[in-house]
């Protein structure tokens, strides 16, 4: 398999739940991926250095992977402020990957202390003062958690020194150029504006009542399936917009509507265009979409 020199990965954490770590650990092709890389440090995998050795900031690393929300002061790893450790390795590393929404934008833990907690390079969608210094090395992989295949794609592209097209928030376009809506198994119901009649049904779209943010959330959850098998919307759970700088919004299981009209439009779609199509699509009663897909007889 891997013949060239292995790239050194350093995975550091700040304020986190370890969700990205465990999501990564559940990657079915982990063995293949790891044959090309070696971990200088990883939060759960056995690695050659202790966190205290890592915290001194002197080890070699090619790619720095950051997990967790960031604060300048008051959070330590290996008895050293994470801001010191992150900065030391951000300077040394050739590439920085912010793994997860916390490390990228601040995420869920930002809600506890919004003024002092942020992502490492972005604060929500705003650039922090660190942006200028590190922007050229940065790949953002928001998601709560990240999908292991997203990280794997970035690592392999970096290994092969191939360019990764990114957007203004440094997210790879291959992963975030589409919305979570793309590939959703409920797309026919969205086309014909048929809402799900409640939770626990295969039928119906979750955008109208159940709070689904899929049409305006960037991500490839319905193209690159979770655990190689499914996704939230496939199993009838609304998309909560977890890849977005605004995550987590409020009232996550219900759609904010104004007189029945969804308050947030599908990404980039003018409201007038959307409402015109909606009005027309809703005018038709299509029997197939009113029926159960499977009927069990006894």
């Amino acid at each position: 398999m891997a013949s060239q020199k292995k790239l050194k990965l350093l995975w550091l954490q700040s304020i986190t739940c370890n969700g990205n770590t465990h999501s990564f650990l559940n990657y079915p092709d982990l063995a293949t991926l790891l044959s090309y890389f070696e971990f200088v440090y990883h939060p759960v995998i056995e690695t050659p250095y202790t966190i205290e050795e890592v915290a001194k900031g002197k080890l070699e690393c090619d790619i720095l992977i950051l997990e967790g929300s960031f604060r300048e002061e008051g959070f330590t790893r290996g008895r050293v402020e994470v801001s010191k450790i992150f900065t030391a390795y951000a300077k040394r590393a050739k590439h920085i990957i912010s793994a997860g929404t916390c490390a990228t934008f601040g995420g869920i833990f930002k809600a506890y202390d919004p003024e002092y907690i942020s992502g490492f390079i972005f604060d929500g969608e705003e650039r922090t003062a660190r942006y200028e210094t590190y922007a050229s090395k940065l790949i953002s992989l928001p998601g709560c958690p990240i999908h292991p295949k997203w990280l794997s794609y970035v690592l392999m592209m970096l290994l092969k020194e191939k360019p990764i097209p990114i957007d203004e928030l440094h997210r790879p376009q291959e992963l975030y150029g589409i919305t979570v809506h793309t590939g959703c198994t409920r797309n026919e119901y969205f086309e014909w504006k048929i809402d799900s009649k409640g939770f626990g049904l295969k039928e119906g779209c979750l955008f109208y009542e159940q709070g689904c943010q899929g049409p305006y959330t960037r991500g490839s959850c319905n193209k690159i399936l979770w655990n190689d098998t499914s996704s939230k919307t496939i199993v009838g759970t609304p998309c909560f917009g977890c890849t977005e700088p605004s995550f987590p919004k409020r009232a996550l299981y219900s759609t904010k509507t104004n007189m029945g009209i969804p308050a947030t439009m599908p990404l980039g779609v003018p409201r007038r265009a959307y409402l015109t199509v909606t009005g027309i699509a809703k005018s038709f009663k299509i029997k197939r979409f009113e029926e159960r897909i499977i009927t069990y007889d006894h």
């Binding site: 969700g19 465990h22 655990n227 499914s230 939230k232 009838g236 759970t237």
Partner: peptide, 26 residues
């Protein structure tokens, strides 16, 4: 094992497929 689970829960980690009254999957 998390793949088996995700068939129902949509994903692991961080599924939110259990709702009052049951589950969202069908």
């Amino acid at each position: 094992v998390t793949k088996a689970m995700s068939i129902f829960s949509g994903q692991w980690p961080h599924s939110s497929y259990a709702v009052p009254g049951g589950v969202t999957c069908d």
